[in-house]
Design a protein around this nucleic acid. Structure first.
Lengths: 340, 340
DNA sequence: CTGTTAGCGCTTTCAC
DNA sequence: GTGAAAGCGCTAACAG
């Protein structure tokens, strides 16, 4: 019994080819001329043995793991899955691996995992997508000094870190302008986490068109939209339209109002944000603001890889991707009188 | 200008503590007694410097990267996101990282990525979740000889590899039995990929209760359910119920039939599979068979980590997780006569 | 209880 | 065009 399928080492290839490891290394990297015949022999052996250089040894020598990290609140969410897919695409195109960490689950060890991986150099850089308030800024700033970092989906101005985000202000403005055009006057916002930049921007856009409209903060889950709608009904608040900061909360609110006998869009118009798959599954279909989250992820990955490659010009730049209002069935002309 | 925030090495800690690296190493691992005072001094220094041992060096020495891989068709899908979350939870509990690879995108280099990571030993083992036909069995068998492998969500009998899957046969049986109980006689199946074990099992269950019922194969996307329903209408096929192999195809079919004026469940009953978030967003809500995909992922990760730890007894075992029929609004008594 | 030494598998001077 | 040798940062014999 010999060793159980141990991978081949470069030394073994060198021995088989009758050359030194140095030559094999250079035949592989091309960083130094190698006799064509020798090179051919080496490559034949490599193919035959299915030899692949050991990642750990390479990493130790070169200082690069050829792996990047992605931190998201929860990888199982549609939204962050899209981002992850984009980052992965970018990473793989550059022949890098992607380590994913879900941060939001109360376990602080897990919170710190991605930053630890940066210092252990298990990853060369990190794409950070958080949807919580900006409490961990300190940690991010420290991480940014250690290794390349890209902020994804949110831009924290106080942090001098490259970021990729979307024109949520313009998107929100388009959305509420539509409501205005339709004659609505009393709007209620079901917003995202308080203090989150993208929440603030959308609220700003809302207030520019409808000053003084009510804002309630949810957690981006369907249940919170449902709950807020329940509170609205109980408190007998008068409104003819709801502007939600994501589709799930919009759908939750829509469900609750429909249960209470409201007709959408005859009695109330509802607008979401993101354009998730669900937006076209509900009845009526949901008017929403589309963001291409796969693209957000892809650009985030590219930005990080640029930093890693050390392209100097592009560093510190930030990318802003467009949003698009998608008008569907959940919005319509304001009713004569708001329903009680 | 000194080195730009280079991580500390163990040597530097050793120098600062006035001991050898060996002692630092053992103070850290506890694999050999160290003078309490010395140990305390070392730990103080470690905390102060925020020292973390280099992952690459550890990996090179120990042969373990403390990282596992996950291969899924597409991480941005709800379904695989759930699996990923479960695998990640298991990995993180064991202080392992998780590298994610989406395999299905026509790029063969990408297909091979996860297996290459196995041979470069960037990952110690792999959780493989494919939803395609069993073409890549050869590759999987080879990989299984090299490193620990766990099949997730699908069990390929011909492969002697541990797997985690769900009782889809029983789930399908429950679903079609419900239809039988409701008096349905003409069922059409919108099935998954042909040749996929889980597809075959569900088809078997269907045929045991409704021999000879029609089966059409989709690709698990909403559009394919929609398309198959269109074909059904065009061909004037008579049926009173649809059994779809996942929720998205069920919803696609439901949309198409509703567009054609069919009422659900008065004219047609529809059953899905998986119990995705969408199942409760559509109107009527969807009767479906619940699978806990996060748990499938978690158990897959645990099984892999057990193999890595070398616990001998548990190797080669396979896990089968339960399914549960969730009756909602899309199923009802069969109409007197099938609608044309 | 602690230090010296020899690698893990690779890249990269430096010498021929 | 090629090879010998020195590490990358860590662990684990082997000696005190």
């Amino acid at each position: 019994m010999d060793n159980p399928t141990r991978p081949w080492t470069m030394q073994q290839i060198a021995d088989a080819a009758g050359v030194s490891v140095t030559t094999v290394s250079h035949a592989l990297s091309g960083k130094r001329p190698v006799n064509p015949q020798t090179a051919a022999r080496i490559h034949r052996l490599i193919d035959q043995f299915q030899y692949v250089p050991d990642a750990g040894a390479r990493r130790l020598q070169s200082g690069r793991s050829r792996t990047i990290g992605l931190a998201v609140p929860d990888i199982s969410h549609w939204y962050f899955g899209r981002i992850a897919r984009g980052v992965e695409d970018a990473a793989n195109e550059a022949d890098h691996g992607l380590v994913v960490t879900s941060t939001s689950n109360a376990d602080p060890r897990r919170e710190a995992r991605c930053f630890t991986m940066l210092t252990t150099r298990a990853i060369d850089g990190l794409v950070y997508a958080s949807s919580r308030s900006t409490a961990e800024i300190e940690q991010l700033a420290r991480a940014a000094r250690t290794a390349p970092l890209v902020l994804s989906d949110e831009n924290i101005d106080s942090l001098d870190v490259p970021s990729v985000s979307t024109t949520v202000y313009e998107g929100a403005r388009d959305a509420v302008t539509l409501l205005k055009t339709l004659g609505h006057e009393r709007i209620v916002a079901i917003a995202g986490y308080q203090g989150l930049p993208s929440t603030l921007e959308r609220t700003r856009a809302l207030h520019e068109v409808f000053p003084g409209s009510l804002t309630f903060h949810g957690d981006f889950e369907l249940a919170s939209g449902y709950r807020i709608a329940t509170e609205l009904l109980a408190a007998d608040v008068r409104f003819t339209a709801i502007f939600a900061h994501n589709d799930y909360m919009a759908i939750g609110a829509m469900q609750r109002l429909q249960e209470a006998g409201w007709r959408v869009p005859e009695d109330v118009s509802i607008i979401g944000f993101d354009d998730t798959d669900s937006a076209t599954m509900v009845t009526p279909t949901l008017t929403t603001v589309r963001k291409d989250m796969v693209e957000v992820g892809r650009r985030s990955g590219l930005l990080l890889l640029e930093q890693l490659a050390g392209t100097p010009g592009s560093a510190q730049s930030s990318v802003l991707l467009p949003t698009e209002l998608v008008v569907r069935g959940s919005t319509g002309p304001a009713p004569r009188a708001p329903r009680a």
